[in-house]
Design a protein around this nucleic acid. Structure first.
Lengths: 141, 141
DNA sequence: ATCGAGATTGACGTTCACGTAAGGGGAAGG
DNA sequence: CCTTCCCCTTACGTGAACGTCAATCTCGAT
């Protein structure tokens, strides 16, 4: 959230609907849908987070690319850096690896889950604190 | 979260225990307790997030300062920028303001609460997705 | 008196996640 | 053919949040 942070950078994102109407998406399609800039998508590509096909030089995003983008953005919203997100993507991609690799992947996943649950606790604490303050404001008329 | 992000930047932080043994804290006391650097604390001070007393030139942190620091750090962990955190601190500090001000503050608080609840939804989605992947890993022996 | 540990203030450097020109290609419409 | 529009790449700039020296200062202990 650093960067050019607006007052309220996070918005609700529906669990992503399928869009069977379309077969592929342009960069501006996805930019419009997810409220990101082309620059951001190209940056994610440079960082190895996503790899759309090309028609000539133009990027063509598949449904899978679109879903992955949604996943990336949600990862960002819950506070992961792009490096961390790529790492997680890589974990997913070694699903066919050796057993020791799989064990490693599994442990990382469990760590992440614990991390996220700690974060939920932080958020709950913040929420209750804000709610108490709201009550205080309401009562002091 | 940016900056020199380690693999797992977030750690559980107990709801902060009172520490009635101490009467005040030095900068390195708080640094050790909260795992931050002196540079960070001085930076927060430059940004107006905290304002400890001085004994000569040295900073003396009170219990209130310590609690505020804990609050700041939790704010960071849930994804707020320092500017946003300071804004919230300012909101708390105008509890004696006029009615219109109070109304404004109240709306901002409610917005923030909604924001945090959206974030909780994102986190839940992420968790369930990771758990599904864990199950997949476990089952593919 | 001095010595080292820990405090201070600048001031410049760094990383992340893009923003922002600057310049150019290709298709479509008038 | 020229303009418009959308796409591309290259490259330098930027804001947030510190890191990292460097040069003091100060205070308790030897």
């Amino acid at each position: 959230m650093p960067m050019n942070a607006p007052a309220f950078p996070l918005e609700a994102l529906a669990p992503i609907d399928a869009r069977p109407d379309r077969d592929s998406f342009t960069i501006s399609d996805l930019c419009a849908e997810f409220s990101v800039t082309p620059r951001a998508l190209r940056f994610y590509e440079d960082e190895g987070l996503i790899g759309p096909e090309r028609r000539g030089t133009a990027r063509i995003y598949s449904h899978r690319d679109r879903a992955r983008l949604a996943w990336i953005l949600r990862g960002k919203r819950v506070g992961f850096s792009l490096a961390e997100i790529r790492e997680m993507i890589d974990l997913y991609d070694v699903g066919d690896g050796r057993s020791t690799q799989k064990q490693f992947t599994l442990e990382r996943c469990l760590e992440r889950i614990e991390l996220l649950e700690n974060q939920k606790r932080d958020i709950d604490a913040h929420i209750t604190e804000l709610q108490q303050f709201v009550e205080l404001l309401k009562s002091s008329d």
